[in-house]
Write a protein that binds this DNA or RNA. Structure first.
Lengths: 350, 350
DNA sequence: TGTTAGCACTCAATTGTACAGAGTGCTAAG
DNA sequence: CTTAGCACTCTGTACAATTGAGTGCTAACA
């Protein structure tokens, strides 16, 4: 559940004998709990291995040599590296949510009302509340939805508004600026033609636009090209980011906070961050794995939402590399499953 | 320009003789520049009063007694209080933008394209770029716009989408859930009736809904009530916040950063913050003046945008109380004027 | 051969002290 | 009213000494 990409056969370099694994795990757990370097005696005490600190120490030397741990300085305890966290996460037995939280999620999904956008936004708040981390909810783009209705509305003689409704319930508007004055009748006619042309097509469909040069035909051409130009920008994807203030509690160091926030400001970037992680087949990206240098102090958890088995958005959580992976993973999965269930079968509405 | 609320007659308690004013101003300027407590000798050196530090000192004692300055501790320099900043801002001769920035603004408004929302969002980025502070752009609600078109679209037998277009170019959608299966014909008929009913009304108009109990009439009633229920929530106001990452650079102290960010997360709250300040007739709210305890370390600058003289949105800047008022005020005003000009006369479009 | 107790060593963090410097308030003289 | 002079207060810094956590190594042991 925590890892999907690597082949099921365990490659030797990332594998460890049982004791090393136990020790590494203990270090990670303890460091997540305390945010402090973890020493050998603390590990020896925590773990049921019944070995002395000295033994732990010599194992830790190996773990450090292999890149799972680092010492901030001589005579300090050890801290996990990204690789250390990766091992930990890969070997994490998937946890379940606390029953109180489980209840909270049920409650939430039983009661949310409103447009899809509202539900997604509130979901991101829910995730933040559950985990105390910054959350991201990405709604599906409508590139695969078919067009249910197109309408051209007159604002004034030169300006029209193209309003398109998609089968996923999304509505998109485009301003049309006519190079000439148009009458209401012409707009109505163009509207009618557009409907005939576009209904039941998707944004990916090719359509045959009229080549005449009269007002109506020009309007129609203009409208179609605006609509089809939609894709390159955002594909109509919607992003909802919740709890960005948590960034300030969770990272120490103003500079880190600033860098992370300024990434979060760029919603398109967040979308591609989430997408990249999913494309790699991961559900957790730790430190440098996420590909954005300013986020090298972060771990990102993602869980896909599907509609009829096809990817249709995702939820994500962003925290420090020493985040509470088990809980956060559980929360992300539970929430994504609820979303999948909600949007999966029935169309959902207020 | 910097102050509008207080009566034009100067009330004595907030007034100071020329020398005290000069000294206070010097302290404020210096503290804004250095973020350090300002000592008497530094003031004596800066100012053209040709007085000794000792004199400055004795004046400062008075200024402190009257609440314009405070000492962080004995034997430290002085720091302005909110009241001190208020005096400073009230007596600020309105500055002008640097010519490079002036140019940048012109350039920007000459080139922005796209929907109103896009323009406003980009404007907030512009403001942040100009000032290095977090910026807020509030778009007008459409409560006073008239309805140009209403359309009911069938998603499936039980679910319809109500799409309304307003004269200000905004589009709003509502999900309608019918308590019975409806046919395409019924939807089309309801759509027609809704148009007849609502076109050229505003959300504040009362309309006569059909009282019959057939499918179409029920749909119409449902749609109208959904549409009219819109207001209490947000009035359709749009908020665009730019540069929230600047919060992390501009305030020291994690706790302050967290508090400010968590206010910024609540967009409705930001809208009312801006509105409150405007309602007080202020263009700057310093520290506790803004009414939100978590923002007591902040100053907020606002400038209204008008359409045909009527209030229609605002731009704002949020920084520390020791923000660069002159520059920020200039930027806010220039930008708000550009917006006013753009939206004021002509309807604007892509 | 793997484990462990013992030990010397390292380094960060803390404490205490001394000192310099910035800035004040007060006073007395101009 | 202004200001020079001065004693005083408080912070910040530098430095040394101390503490303590934690290590690496080695030699003994099972």
């Amino acid at each position: 559940m925590a890892r999907r990409a690597p082949a099921p056969t365990k490659p030797s370099p990332t594998d460890l004998d049982a004791r090393k694994a136990t020790i590494l795990e203990a270090v990670v757990v303890e460091h997540i709990r305390t945010a402090q370097p973890v020493g050998s005696s603390s590990v020896a005490a925590t773990v049921n291995l019944a070995v002395s600190p000295a033994t732990v120490r010599s194992e830790m030397v190996t773990l450090e040599r292999e890149g799972f741990l680092v010492q901030p300085h001589t005579s300090a305890g050890r801290v996990p590296t990204d690789k250390g966290y990766r091992f930990f996460v890969d070997h994490l037995k998937s946890g379940v949510l606390g029953s109180a939280q489980q209840h909270q999620v049920k409650e939430f999904f039983a009661n949310v009302r409103g447009e899809v956008e509202d539900v997604l936004e509130q979901t991101s708040m829910l995730l933040t509340q559950l985990t105390n981390y910054t959350s991201v909810v990405v709604g599906a783009g409508h590139s695969h939805s078919s067009i249910l209705s197109v309408q051209l509305v007159n604002l004034d003689a030169r300006h029209q508004l193209l309003v398109s409704v998609f089968s996923d319930g999304s509505v998109v508007k485009h301003s049309v600026m006519a190079p000439f004055d148009v009458t209401h009748e012409e707009v109505a006619e163009a509207s009618k033609q557009l409907n005939a042309l576009l209904i039941n097509t998707t944004l990916e469909s090719r359509v045959q636009v009229p080549s005449r040069s009269d007002h109506v035909a020009t309007l129609v051409r203009e409208a179609v090209s605006l609509l089809h130009a939609e894709k390159p920008t955002t594909d109509g994807e919607q992003v909802f980011i919740g709890g960005s203030s948590r960034v300030a509690e969770v990272f120490q160091g103003v500079e880190t906070v600033r860098k992370v926030l300024s990434i979060l400001e760029q919603e398109l970037l967040v979308v591609s961050l989430v997408q990249d992680i999913l494309d790699q087949g991961l559900s957790v990206a730790i430190g440098s794995e996420n590909g954005y240098e300013p986020l090298s102090a972060c771990a990102v958890i993602v869980a896909q939402v599907t509609i009829d088995g096809a990817p249709a958005g995702a939820v994500g959580l962003l925290g420090p590399t020493r985040m509470k992976y088990r809980e956060a993973l559980a929360a992300a999965h539970v929430v994504s499953e609820h979303l999948t269930r909600r949007f999966g079968g029935e169309e959902q509405h207020g």
